[in-house]
Every structure is written in structure tokens, then in C-alpha cells.
Design a protein around this nucleic acid. Sequence first.
DNA 1: CTGTTAGCGCCTTCAC
DNA 2: GTGAAGGCGCTAACAG
Lengths: 335, 335
Amino acid sequence: MQQVAHHAGVSLATASRVLHGSGSRTVGEELRRRVEAAAQELRYVSNAPAQALARATSSVVGLIVHDVADPYFGAIAAGAMRAAREQRLMVMIAATFREPGLELEYLRGLRAQRARAVILAGSGTADAAATAELAEEIAGFEADGGRVVCIGERGPDLDTVAMANRAGGGLAVRGLWELGHRRIGVVSGPSELLTVRHRLDGARRALRALGAPLPLRAVVEGDFTRAGGRAAAVRLMTEQPDLGALLVLNDVMAAGALAGLRDDLGLAVPTRVSVVGFDDVPFAADLSPALSTVRLPLEQAGEAAVGLLLEPPGDAPRRVELAAELVLRDSTAAV
Amino acid sequence: MQQVAHHAGVSLATASRVLHGSGSRTVGEELRRRVEAAAQELRYVSNAPAQALARATSSVVGLIVHDVADPYFGAIAAGAMRAAREQRLMVMIAATFREPGLELEYLRGLRAQRARAVILAGSGTADAAATAELAEEIAGFEADGGRVVCIGERGPDLDTVAMANRAGGGLAVRGLWELGHRRIGVVSGPSELLTVRHRLDGARRALRALGAPLPLRAVVEGDFTRAGGRAAAVRLMTEQPDLGALLVLNDVMAAGALAGLRDDLGLAVPTRVSVVGFDDVPFAADLSPALSTVRLPLEQAGEAAVGLLLEPPGDAPRRVELAAELVLRDSTAAV
DNA sequence: CTGTTAGCGCCTTCAC
DNA sequence: GTGAAGGCGCTAACAG
């Protein structure tokens, strides 16, 4: 920048003002033109780290997900990045690959980068120790002036974009009920994930309200992956062959469940058993049969998270609630 | 760090050496311990931008994709991030949402961030002007000491991870041929994308070698999206109803094609028409019917790209070639 | 409006 | 092995 200033015959400060002009200070037309020309000619590229150092704030926001290849996070990331672009923010992304310790490590890394904010997109966990450590790191991050927003519940004092996981679980179960299903099973994910707990809880409550409490044996747990869904669904239908409908707690697992039902067990969907997934990821409609599922506005969640980051800190924690919607396709049938 | 040094009763330089110790200088056991204790106690977090400024190099690498929500890029990103984690690199991700200008803009942004390197994951384009501009920016980036690697062809003088797009196109066509298909059509993507051109070219050559050149009317172009694939497939089968097999140039489009054939045209796959896709994204096996496709080692490509980044610049451009493999599932049948 | 002058937090010769 | 001092590129008062 020194060079640009010299080349344009102005002071360093003036060059800085026209090039990065932050704030009220304005520069005369003539000088402004000269500086811009010089920058152009010298192919000047500003130095973001230096700016970050001087202003004690940067234009990067962090995004921590479990797995970028998972369409659930892909959709959230897409929404967040679209919003980030509008705000001219760069996003630094980190994937924990579902290793709990990595979330903490990356948050620390983002703190070292002096990220202006970070979005915790993955589900919180029921592990108290891990949660406490994370809370401490979050506090540190915020003490440094950074903002943190969670997608999904993480704690009452955090800005969060809340997904209707409980309501969604209820929606699914009631939808199945209305189709005439009475023997409903649940293919669940790892029970330490809050997201899983909430979805399951929503389903449980709805069933209880309907007068048909969910028996323990009708719930089986698997990894939050395709293979996990397949194995769990097969196990559940083997142990409880009288089930007529399955709620699978995410679409990726549901894809596996569909495969297991068809290829491992030879059970026809939806004639023999109906299946409802959760999330409505892009490929849900292309599965065989097209998956009925609980739609969550994933991209919108990513956008909303960036929206919260932009708002000034505020006294009370902010929340935006996103609704769920049941979409019935071909994997469910009336009985 | 000043504080840590003071707290440990050592100089700033010593604290720096034990905390970020880059290089030959070593610190005595005793002092080292004291500094570490002080850092721990004061909850010191190093300042990456300051380090970047002082060392004139950072630990962030950029990753530019077209769309994070696209499973093709999701898989590449996952591979790249896994490798980045092993190297303790942070990755800054940017999505162009297929707007050509954005690639340039983001590359510039990454340059401003003083990223140590950037991976251009999206396909190159046949637009000469855009390519030239990009080349210039790449040159500038490298002049600043940054490294650039491309996934897919971008130019002979760039480090690149080459995917077997041509060979894959040939593989698909020959596979279909061996199944007895003689009337093969191609659902293509935007012809300005180099990836598309290479895949199509591979198919063309193979067909010519087989003595049955691909007629122009048997190729139809659509967006590189689900909707694009659907529309193009429907159009192609409507105009050329005698086609017995379709090569769709990526899996996302193939998902759309399958939907269109089934829901819009009522054509049975694979009995009436066989379909083969390209990429083998994770959901390919879950489509209805399970999609036969040309598998590309996507995650591996991401990892390889990071691998290239790490190697010292070298005199000649480096290349790593990744092979394609035809995987036949249920969307293809013999005639 | 424009220029001067201190730093921002850290690294790195260079002496000790 | 350890400390002192200058500088990385930029911003932000503060004077003119």
C-alpha cells in the first residue's frame, strides 16, 4: 500500500482510506481517482491478516459441521455461504467427522484465526463434560468479541436457530397414524445427539397423546449414516416383524433402511411397511420409493444463522424458530 | 503473548519460541515449562493473523467449488478437509454457485487472505476471456508465493489432479455396447464446461472406434442439475424415441433423468431404456433403480489436491491421474 | 480533506 | 540459550 500511496503521490493514510475506507472519513475526488489508478496499475491486493491485526476484527466466519459430504450439512452450508457472500464474508469451514473432540479443537482454531463469528451447525451432545468444555471455549470466544450461533439446541444462553425437531417427530407419527398405522417403530440415531433425542421425544409424546405409547422394543438405534440406518432397520424389523411403519430419524439413514428392507429382508415399501424419513435432503424424492419425510428448511437455517451473526450482540440471546412440514411421497401408504 | 512472557518471567522472544517455535532455536527445559504453564493459566490463544503478517505465510488453504450442496463437491471437499486436518491446515471454502465471475472474485479474496494455497475444484470453462483473466490472477497468486492446484484440466502449466473423464466416457459407452445397445444417446451438461466436453468426447471417440459414430441429434444439453437432467432426458427421448440407452454426464442429472423417464414419459428403466450416470456420488446406489455409473474417486481427488499443495513448488507442473471405473447396477440391462 | 504518528501481535535477525 | 529491537501491512486517532 506504501507503494500505491507513493505512486499516487499521497500519504499512506489517504491510500488506506480510499482502498479500504472504513467509516466516516472521505477523500477528495481527485486523490481518490489517483489512488485507484495506482492500485490498479500496481495490481495491489490488500492484506487481510494485516487488516485483521490492525482493526482487531476480521471478515471471516467459521462454520463447524460434522461432515461436509452429508447432504444435511451440505444444504446448511450452502445457505450459510449464500448469505455470507452477500455480506462479503469469507467462510472457514471445519468438519469434525463426528469426533467430539474435534469440535473443540476447531473452535479454538477459529478463535486463533480471530474469526468474527462461528456457526456450530452440528447437533449438541448429551455428554456433560464435553458440553462444559465447549461452553468454556465459547465463553472465551465471545469474551474476545466473537459471536457464536448454534443451529439446533446447545444451551439457553446462546443465539440459536432452532429446528422444529420435536414438532417434526410429532408430525411424522400423526401422519402415519392418520394413514391407519398403529404399529409404528422408530429407527433412531445415536442417543447422545440432542437432535436425535428431540426427534424421538416428539414422536414419543405424539404417540402417547394418541393413546398408544411407543414401546421400548420398537425403537432401535444406529449410526447417523446410511449403513447405520440399514443395519438398524433390518434389526428392528427382524425383532419386531409386526411393525407396519417406520419413522427413521434422518434421510440418510432412511436411504439405508429402504435398501435393507428391500435387499436384506424383501419387505415391500410401502405395501408391507411404510417409511418416513427426516430432513428432506435433496435426494429424498429420488429414492426408491420416493421418501416421505419431515422437511426442515435447511438452507434457510444456514442463512438465518448468518443473519443472527450480523445483528449486534444484544442483551438477551436471540432465537429463530424454523418450522417442520410433513411431506408424503411414495414410501407411505394407508392401511 | 507479552503477558505470558511477563508472567513466566522471560522475554517476549522466548515465549514466542516455545509457543510457536518455528525453526532452529531451542529453549531450555525450565523456561519452556514456565512459559507453557503461564500460557495455560492465562488461557493464551495465539493470533493467527499476526503470525501471518509477521511470517508472510498462513496456514489456511482455499477451496473453491461450484456448489457445496452438490454431492460431487461434497465428496471432494470431504477428502480435502480430511487431508487438511492431518496437516493442521484450516480451509476457507467458497462457492461460486456456478457464476463464472465469482471464481475470480474468490480467488482474489483468498489472495487477500494470504492463503497459502488454493484448490480450484470446479470444472474449467471454454470461455477464453474468463480463462485468461483467471490465469492472470493465478499467476499473481503464485507470484505472491501461493500454490494453486486444479481438480480437472485447467491448463498444462498448472499442478492438477486429473480425473479420467475421457476414459470414463469411453468406459460407459463400451459397457453399454457390450450389453448389446446400439442406439445410444447422451444427456450432456453445459458444453462450455471442460469436464462435460471431455466426458462427451470420450464417449464420442469410443463410439466411433466401435464403428457407430454418435449422431448430433442423439446428444442434448441441459443444466448440470437435477432439473436440467430431467428436462434434457425428456426432450431427448421425445425427439429420438428409438434410443435404447442413455449416458447422462453426471449423477445429479441422472437422478433427474430417471425421474423424467418414469414420471413424465412412463418409460421403464432398464427394460425400455438403460441409463448410466457419471461420478458415482453416494446416493447413486439408492436411486430407483440403482444407478449404473462411472465411478470417480472423488474423496481421493480432494486428498490428492492437498497432497500436491504440500509438495515444494518444483520445476515442472505436477499431475496426478485418477482412474475411472464403470459400475453396473440396476439401471442398465442387456438387450 | 489530508498527512503524521503510534501501535496491532508476532517473528527474526542480531548481539550477549 | 536468551534478550533487545526492528519490521510485517494496515488502521486510527490526532493534528493541520
